[in-house]
């Protein structure tokens, strides 16, 4: 193990480590802690210049109620779910199929198509912006949830296919071969043999895509204009414009908007990290 475990080090190193660890964490999360405290500060504190001290009273309930009551943030969050969940299902579903095709069959265009998916994944969004916006407008899907969902599904398919293809490649190929010898159709091989083995990959990808899409801001501003379809990232930005200097509300709103992916991360941590670090060990 590297570095040397502190248990093997001199006692003072061990003590120093246990002291430094929490301090480092607090410093690292200082901006976040500041915002969390501001979100429970009464507005009177801000007016009186008490920005950093202990809040004069706990106003968390007031602030968070105010955010939900006086702003459409609840609606924005609902929109975010309406965009995120179908995208996760669509992109992961399509990637199961295309990842299977690229991992199991040997045909001439295989690598070419695979690298097309990989490369498409890394391009700057701006090169797609004008045509995608124009196409969405002409299809009558501009400013709608489905317009956003369709684009997200298509774009995420690139990353998801890369992920699925690499995962299926690591499965025992003998399983597929012996099924073929038995005369099992290709679709059944996919449906009943490979798909059940893909569960961990599906879980990891779903959590990742959920976070990516929830946190998307660029496409939410390009493909959506009005409140009715706006996800929470873009919604928070427009609220920030209305809540000038009401930092207790901005803070509470930020925390509300950040909550779903954070919960997702802590509940599904193992899958999340497995997905994110794919390739970090053997690549």
């Amino acid at each position: 193990m590297f570095p040397t475990p502190v248990q093997k080090a001199a006692p003072w190193v061990r003590h120093a480590y246990t002291i430094i660890l929490p301090i480092a964490l607090i410093l690292w999360l200082l901006p976040l802690i500041g915002v969390a405290i501001t979100s429970v500060r009464p507005s009177a504190d801000l007016a009186a210049g008490n920005y950093f001290g202990i809040p004069s009273r706990f106003a968390g309930i007031d602030n968070y109620t105010a955010v939900f009551r006086d702003s459409p943030i609840g609606w924005y969050i609902l929109n975010s779910f309406k965009v995120t969940i179908p995208t996760v299902i669509g992109a992961v579903g399509l990637a199961c199929l295309s990842g299977f095709a690229l991992a199991v069959y040997k045909f001439r265009a295989n690598l070419l198509i695979f690298f097309l998916f990989v490369a498409g994944n890394f391009i700057p969004f701006q090169i797609l912006m004008v045509p995608v916006r124009d196409m969405t407008l002409r299809a009558g899907l501009y400013d709608s949830i489905s317009g956003l969902v369709l684009f997200h599904i298509a774009f995420q398919t690139g990353f998801c296919t890369l992920f699925m293809r690499n995962f299926i490649t690591s499965l025992p190929f003998a399983l597929i071969e012996s099924a073929r010898v038995e005369g099992v159709s290709e679709w059944r091989i996919f449906r009943y043999i490979v798909l059940p083995l893909m569960r961990p990959a599906i879980a990891a990808l779903s959590v990742l895509v959920f976070t990516f899409i929830w946190n998307d801001y660029f496409w939410a501003t390009v493909l959506v204009q009005g409140q009715h379809a706006m996800p929470v990232t873009a919604g928070l930005y427009s609220l920030n414009g209305q809540w000038i200097a009401a930092w207790h509300l901005v803070s509470a709103g930020s925390i509300v908007a950040a909550m779903p992916p954070v919960l997702m991360f802590f509940l599904m941590q193992k899958h999340f990290i497995a997905g994110l670090t794919l390739g970090a060990t053997k690549g």
Binding site: L94, A95, L97, S98, F100, A101, L102, V104, Y105, F107, N110, I113, L116, F117, G120, I123, I127, L128, M129, V130, P131, V132, M135, L150, F151, I153, A154, F155, T157, G158, T161, S185, E186, W187, F190
Partner: peptide, 28 residues
């Protein structure tokens, strides 16, 4: 079957990806 199956599996993903990612690059 062996020759057609990969294309059938690929079709939905490839069509979506081409419409929204590959073709728009050239359009831009």
């Amino acid at each position: 079957q062996q020759r057609l199956a990969p294309w059938l599996f690929l079709a939905p993903g490839m069509i979506m990806f081409s419409i929204y990612v590959i073709i728009p690059i050239f359009q831009s």
